[in-house]
C-alpha cells in the first residue's frame, strides 16, 4: 500500500511540474538547456548557503529564521546574476540570428525562457526539498510530526513543494519582466513573496501550525501567480507597450 500513497504524494508535488515541463519545455531543446542551467544556478546558491550555515547547525530554532532570510537573499542575488548572464547570452544569440538571417528574440521567446528558468528553479526546489522527503513515503509507514497531527509530513512536504514550484515559476516570469522594464514594484514583489513564503513555512513548527502554514504559503503562491498572470495578460494585450515586438513571423521557433 505504500506505493499508492507514495505515487499520490509524488503527483501532488511534481504533477504540475511535469505537466508544464512536458507541454511547454520539452518540445524545445533550448528550453530544456535553460531549465538545467537555471536549476544549476539555484543549486549553486543553495550549496553556498548550506556550506555557510552548516557550521551553525544543529542550533537553536531561531537559527532557521536567519538561515531562511539569508538563503532567500542569496537566491535573489543569484536570480539577478542569472538575469545578467541571460542578457549576455541573448545578445550573442541575436548576433548569431542576424548572421544566419533569422529573427531576433521577441517577447514570447523571452517569456518562454523566463518560464523555463522558473521551472528550473522550481524543479530543483521540489526535487531537493520535496522528493527527498517524499521518498520514504513509498514504504509502508507514514509519519506525523509532533506539531502537526492533521496531516502527514509527506503531505505537508508535497503541498509545499507544489506551492514553491509554482511560486518559483511565476516569480521568474515577473522578475524577467521587472528587469526588462526596470519596474521597481515588480522587482520588490518577487523577493518579498519568496521570503514571505519561506518564512511562512516556519508556521508549520507551531502546534497545529500546518493547518495555517500550508494555506498561507499557497496564498503567497496564488498572489504570485495572479500577479504574474496579470503581467503576461497585459503584455499580450492590444495596448501593450511592446506591441510590435510581439509580432514576429516565427516567434520562438528559431529557438
Amino acid at each position: 500500500m505504500g506505493l499508492v500513497a507514495g505515487f499520490g504524494y509524488f503527483l501532488i508535488a511534481l504533477g504540475p511540474a511535469l505537466t508544464i515541463f512536458g507541454s511547454s519545455v520539452a518540445p524545445k531543446p533550448f528550453l530544456i538547456l535553460t531549465v538545467l542551467a537555471s536549476a544549476l544556478v539555484w543549486l549553486a546558491s543553495l550549496n553556498i548557503a548550506a556550506i555557510v550555515w552548516r557550521a551553525f547547525l544543529p542550533g537553536p530554532s531561531w537559527v532557521f529564521l536567519l538561515i531562511l532570510t539569508t538563503s532567500v537573499a542569496l537566491q535573489e542575488a543569484f536570480r539577478l546574476l542569472y538575469w545578467h548572464l541571460y542578457l549576455k547570452i541573448e545578445k550573442y544569440l541575436n548576433v548569431l540570428a542576424t548572421k544566419l538571417s533569422k529573427p531576433q528574440c521577441n517577447y514570447l521567446d523571452r517569456l518562454e525562457i523566463a518560464l523555463a528558468s522558473g521551472v528550473g528553479h522550481g524543479l530543483a526546489h521540489a526535487v531537493f526539498f520535496g522528493l527527498s522527503i517524499i521518498a520514504p513515503a513509498f514504504g509502508p509507514a507514514t509519519y506525523y510530526t509532533s506539531s502537526c497531527k492533521q496531516m502527514p509530513l509527506f503531505l505537508v512536504s508535497a503541498l509545499s513543494s507544489l506551492a514553491f514550484f509554482l511560486l518559483h515559476t511565476f516569480s521568474m516570469v515577473i522578475a524577467f519582466n521587472a528587469y526588462t522594464y526596470d519596474n521597481i514594484s515588480q522587482k520588490l514583489f518577487v523577493p518579498i513573496m519568496h521570503l514571505g513564503a519561506a518564512l511562512l513555512t516556519l508556521v508549520n513548527l507551531l502546534p497545529n501550525g500546518c493547518t495555517a502554514g500550508v494555506p498561507l504559503v499557497f496564498l503567497c503562491t496564488a498572489l504570485t501567480m495572479a500577479y504574474g498572470g496579470k503581467i503576461v495578460w497585459h503584455n499580450l494585450g492590444p495596448h501593450s507597450l511592446h506591441h510590435g515586438y510581439l509580432h514576429s513571423p516565427q516567434s520562438g521557433s528559431s529557438l
Binding site: 505515487f7 501532488i12 504533477g15 509502508p140
Partner: peptide
C-alpha cells in the same frame, strides 16, 4: 510504525491525479 488506512492512501493518490489533471 504508523500506517494509514488504505482509503486514505487511495485518497492521496486521487488528489495527486486530480492536481495533475487540473494542471493539464
Amino acid at each position: 510504525y504508523q500506517k494509514e488506512d488504505s482509503w486514505y492512501e487511495e485518497l492521496i493518490l486521487f488528489i495527486g491525479v486530480f492536481v495533475t489533471f487540473v494542471s493539464i
